[in-house]
């Protein structure tokens, strides 16, 4: 089981690292997806090893994947619109509505 969890942990850490260091919104979105998928792996793994007779973890993962897809679509739509409006997707420069 540990062989599955360590890659998931690495994936998650990469995601966090990417999310806090990247300024580009698309890169941040990719990092976010990475974290989400790491969590999905954890769900599947725990379900498989701890409760082999049950399927809740699997289904939850399927849900998470479906919602992640929708969420990505939405996020990309927002990013495209932001880009159209500001010609820029750098989070540090998007401060027009702050003041």
């Amino acid at each position: 089981m540990i062989y599955y969890l360590i890659p998931a942990l690495l994936m998650f850490c990469c995601g966090v690292y990417g999310f806090v260091t990247r300024k580009n919104m698309i890169a941040m979105l990719i990092s976010l997806e990475l974290m989400l998928n790491a969590v999905d792996i954890n769900f599947v793994v725990f379900n498989r090893y701890l409760f082999p007779g049950q399927m809740e973890g699997m289904f939850f993962t399927l849900f998470a994947i479906a919602i992640a897809a929708a969420e990505t679509a939405l996020a990309i739509a927002i990013i495209i619109n932001v880009f159209r409006a500001a010609r820029n997707v750098d989070v540090n420069d998007l401060n027009k509505m702050k003041h």
Binding site: V16, F19, V20, T21, K23, V91, N92, N95, K98
Partner: peptide, 12 residues
């Protein structure tokens, strides 16, 4: 500040 990454740092 409105800088989302700083929030994430704090949260983390």
């Amino acid at each position: 500040s409105g800088k989302i990454q700083m929030y994430v740092w704090v949260y983390l």
